[in-house]
Design a protein around this nucleic acid. Structure first.
Length: 737
DNA sequence: AGGTTAGTAATTTTT
DNA sequence: TTACTAACCT
């Protein structure tokens, strides 16, 4: 006890007390409940670095898991910044990338070879369609995407075909979902392929059934770190639990209030149950927020407090300068006016010196971006849409990928099928069917079957020549690859196969962009030593980090915004039916509503300085106008921290019933009439001298045109419109005709 | 075999 | 409104 205390390393000194506890509690299970903006990533990376700096573990003995490649990259960079050398030899990556890496070592245990191909969503769907067709399932009655969803949910829960209980076999295709699932898995095995779900599923199956393999991984991993634990699904949880059995040093970081992916199979219960799952677990709460002003924090906290079954955290400000502007709640006449309002405020912010890169518009659903895009284009405000189609999801890139896959592995039937008639080589249904027949009869890959078919001369002239050219081409390109490497060969292949020519001949406006993408594709290929390395990378890293540069405004969905932050955040479309989304409530009931509320919480907490929430009374949905009612979430914001704008009507404390369209047939969402407090939401009040409308009166509505009043209830009027469906609207939007 | 047209459906999508 | 698919025609 006489030794002087060791100096506290600088990286620890930068932490607050709770963060430090999370970093220094190294042994045993630990759950770090990290509220939005409380330094979650800092804790995770510092903890990782601390393990290495204290000599508790070598780099290869720590397993660090994230959901996104971006998070993994960021973690790697920050760890290496702390330890001041490149972070090499780490097992740090996404669940899927890590599982793929492990599965390559044990592939034989699930009937694959270590060179298995990872399928993208496209291939999965095509394969499943084939399986369903082979099983004579009526694709019209039983849409393949429906079965795909069922299978994926099973995989999310670690359920192999033999584990599907009769009770769990849905009524899909007359109770054949389980056998179709089994057939699909068999096909994957035949083709030496794994889909995304398989990466996790197979590994869990291996760890479950092969104690010696499990023991091997236990020896390796002494510490486990998990990011975004609230988003794990069951199979990911099982994988973690199996791996953590060895040393029990598992640290999960997450926030139950930010669980927004249940529809992707995430189970919020995983985080809620942590202390039961891992006996003697410690729980550390990070509640000091360094990101947002006090009104924003108050609004978010007040809103999320309406959820039940939370682990419970109280966000408090960790800043000295936390005072700031109230959250704005702006109500508008319609979605066009909403877009105009957002545009004007953005321009004003720009004039007063704000960077566009610090502003974001966060929407509930993808289609909402269009209105804002149009507005921003008119105003000449540079923006980027985050999310959208990823680089590697574009058709031309997938085609090019398929060519390379066939080049690397001639037995890749799915890839071969994709490109065999792209560009058009005169192959039709007949030719394809014969090819399949031969392949099936002789148990050979499609490409070999195609060669036989050409030799047998069983094809029309054009088809024969086209197919023959392609097959000779592949032989030539394979040979060239040995001599000149994969990059040059890829370029040759794309030219000689006629693929680039196809897009050059295409006169659609997007063709030049596609050619540009193909060039970029070949360039990206050059960054990899081998073709296989590249293919693996692309299969697992489906992202585009381009278009990030320049001072641009960000436009994205709330889901895409998780983990990001901006000075100024616009949150448009807070209307019943849109947000909370009607479908979320239909399908998920009260749970669905709570997830929507968490989404709102995520949205608000993205803002550092100013959040501007808005709702419109009328919105164009799929071409026709419909009226809407302000989101219940607006009522759940603390009145003292918000500032209402944009409405002239001053009706107070009006009782408003939910229109039936939002209550849902199930009645799950039915609730008591609610009170809309001061401020009211309508945009233009009817002049007070106007007499109330009466049934039978002919009226005019700006959006819906002429109609007849069929019912009057307080200020809400049912109208039969002549050129639109009957609707219930606020009387202030009506004029006597 | 391939292009055209009519009909239908339309949240969120880390890998 | 748009975008995608399935049947239909040439």
């Amino acid at each position: 006890m006489s030794a002087p205390p060791a100096p506290i390393p600088d990286y620890l000194a930068r932490l607050n007390a709770e963060q430090r506890e999370a970093v220094e509690t190294l042994d045993g299970p630990l759950l770090v409940l990290a509220g939005a903006g409380t330094g979650k990533t800092r804790v995770l990376t510092t903890r990782f670095a601390h393990l290495l700096m204290t000599g508790r573990a070598f780099p290869g003995q720590v397993l660090a898991v994230t959901f996104t490649n971006k998070a993994a990259r960021e973690m790697r960079e920050r760890v290496s910044a702390i330890i001041q050398r490149p972070a090499e030899g780490l097992w740090l990556g996404t669940f899927h990338a890590l599982c793929a890496r492990m599965l390559r070592r044990h592939a034989d245990l699930v009937g694959l070879t270590s060179g298995f191909t990872i399928l993208d969503a496209d291939d999965q769907m095509r394969l499943l369609k084939q399986v369903m067709a082979a099983g004579a399932v009526d694709a019209k009655r039983w849409p393949p995407p429906g079965l795909m969803a069922v299978i994926q949910r099973w995989k999310d829960r670690g359920i192999t075909p033999d584990r599907v209980t009769p009770a769990e076999d849905t009524d899909f295709a007359g109770g054949r979902a389980r056998s179709l699932y089994a057939a699909y898995q068999d096909r994957l095995k035949d083709l030496n392929c794994a889909d995304f779900g398989d990466l996790m599923l197979h590994m869990v199956e291996i760890l479950r059934n092969h104690p010696e393999v499990l023991a091997e991984w236990h020896r390796r991993f002494r510490y486990i770190l998990v990011d975004e634990y609230q988003d794990t699904n069951l199979v990911q949880y099982l994988w973690l639990r199996l791996l953590a059995q060895g040393h029990k040093n598992i640290c999960c970081v997450g926030d139950d209030d930010q669980s927004i992916y249940s529809w992707r199979g995430a189970e919020i219960e995983n985080i809620l149950r942590f202390e039961k799952d891992f006996p003697n677990a410690r729980v550390v709460r990070l509640e000091s927020n360094y990101r947002s002003t006090r009104p924003i924090l108050a609004a978010a906290s007040h809103l999320i407090a309406h959820n039940t079954g939370r682990l419970g955290k109280t966000l408090r400000t960790g800043r000295n300068d936390a005072d700031g502007e109230k959250v704005r709640v702006v109500s508008l006449w319609d979605s066009e006016e909403e877009a105009r309002m957002v545009g004007e405020r953005i321009e004003a912010a720009q004039r007063s010196g704000h960077k566009l890169a610090e502003i974001a518009i966060l929407v509930r659903a993808g289609f909402q971006t269009r209105a804002f895009e149009e507005r921003l284009i008119t105003l000449g405000v540079p923006y980027r849409v985050v999310g959208g189609l990823k680089f590697y999801e574009r058709a031309e890139i997938r085609d090019a990928m398929a060519y390379l896959r066939v080049l690397a592995q001639p037995s890749d039937d799915l890839a071969f099928e994709r490109i065999v008639n792209t560009p058009k080589r005169g192959l039709g249904d007949t030719a394809m069917r014969r090819m399949h027949e031969i392949a099936r009869a002789e148990h050979i890959p499609l490409a070999s079957a195609a060669a036989k078919l050409v030799q047998a001369g069983g094809l029309a002239g054009k088809a024969r020549a086209g197919l023959s050219d392609l097959l000779h081409g592949f032989a030539r390109w394979r040979e060239q690859m040995g001599r000149e490497g994969h990059v040059v060969t890829a370029a040759t292949l794309l030219d000689e196969s006629g693929y680039t020519e196809m897009w050059k001949a295409d006169k659609s406006p997007e063709a030049p962009g596609r050619l540009e993408n193909l060039k970029e594709f070949v360039r990206a290929l050059g960054e990899f030593e081998t073709l296989n390395g590249f293919l693996e990378h692309v299969a697992l890293v489906m992202e585009n980090d381009e278009n990030a540069q320049g001072d641009r405004l960000s436009l994205m969905t709330l889901h895409a915004a998780k983990g990001l932050e901006f000075d100024m955040v616009f949150l448009p479309g807070w209307e019943e039916g849109l947000f909370p989304h009607a479908r979320a409530m239909e399908e998920g009931g009260e749970r669905g509503l709570e997830e929507e509320r968490r989404l709102a919480y995520v949205g608000l907490t993205r803002a550092r300085k100013l959040a501007i929430v808005s709702c419109a009374a009328n919105r164009r949905v799929y071409g026709n106008w419909s009226s809407s009612i302000p989101s219940r979430f607006l009522d759940e914001l603390p009145i003292e921290h918000i500032q209402r704008e944009g409405s002239a009507g001053m009706a107070r404390n009006r009782v408003v019933d939910m229109p039936s369209v939002f209550t849902g047939a199930s009645g799950l969402m039915a609730r008591k009439p609610r009170t809309i407090e001061a401020g009211a939401w309508e945009v233009q009040a009817r002049p007070s001298h106007a007499a109330p409308l009466t049934v039978g009166e002919r009226v005019f509505h700006k959006k819906f045109g002429y109609g007849t009043v069929t019912a009057v209830e307080d200020n809400r009027v049912d109208v039969n419109f002549e050129k639109s469906d009957p609707k219930r609207v606020l009387d202030s939007f009506l004029e006597r005709a």
